[in-house]
Amino acid sequence: MAVKINMENPKTGEHLHGFYGFSWTTFFFGCIPALFRKDFKTFIGVFIILLILALVTMGIGSTVAMIVWAFMYNKYYTTNLIKRGFQFAGTHTENELASSKLGLTLNPDNCKTFTQNTPTSQIIS
């Protein structure tokens, strides 16, 4: 099941939801979720691939591709948001969980709540 994570682009102030986990909407509706998320390039690319696979394999190949794509799409979408300048904007715990599920390391560029921990040996009383 997909989990939402708040995302924010600090340059534009735009707020979106990122997702991680299995995408049931992609499983049942193929490329349509990309269209609703305004991910037009992905929508067109996946639509063409599914159409070609459906024609060549009488529907079996596109069904298999939709199952595989359902496991991949949320991670693909959210990492592309980060590449476009968005940052995780949930609580720090939510951001840590999302980044670990997506295979990312939190840093000041991709996380709004990131703080650099100062080693205790450098703290002056």
Rank of each mutant, 00 (worst) to 15 (best):
I5N: 00
M1S: 11
L53F: 05
F22C: 01
M66Y: 00
I82H: 05
W69P: 00
L53Y: 02
S125T: 03
F40L: 14
H17R: 08
E96S: 13
V64G: 08
I124A: 10
I44Y: 13
G30A: 12
T93G: 12
K4I: 00
N95G: 07
H17D: 10
K4L: 03
T42K: 13
K75G: 08
T42L: 13
H17L: 06
G103M: 07
L97M: 13
L55G: 15
L102P: 05
T25P: 11
K38G: 07
D109W: 04
G61W: 11
P33M: 09
I48G: 11
G18R: 00
K38H: 14
P33C: 08
P119T: 08
M66H: 01
T120F: 09
G61Q: 11
V46Q: 05
Q87W: 06
D39P: 10
K41D: 08
E96V: 13
T115H: 14
T42I: 10
L35A: 15
F29H: 02
A65K: 07
K112L: 12
E94F: 01
L55Y: 12
F47T: 15
A89H: 00
L50E: 11
M7P: 00
M66D: 05
E94K: 02
T113K: 09
T79V: 13
N110V: 01
P108E: 13
I32A: 12
S125Y: 02
R37C: 03
V3D: 02
V56K: 07
F40S: 07
D39W: 14
A98P: 04
K38N: 14
D39I: 03
F36M: 12
N9L: 04
A70N: 01
A70F: 02
G59M: 06
Y20M: 04
I5L: 03
N6D: 14
M58K: 12
G90L: 03
T115R: 13
M7E: 00
T79N: 12
G18Y: 00
V56I: 15
W69G: 00
L35P: 02
G61N: 10
K75C: 01
V3E: 10
I82N: 04
I124F: 06
G45L: 14
S100W: 06
A2R: 13
Y77S: 07
K112Q: 10
T91P: 01
T79I: 13
I82W: 04
L81I: 05
L104S: 04
S100F: 07
I123T: 07
I60N: 07
K4N: 08
A34Q: 12
G18M: 02
G13L: 09
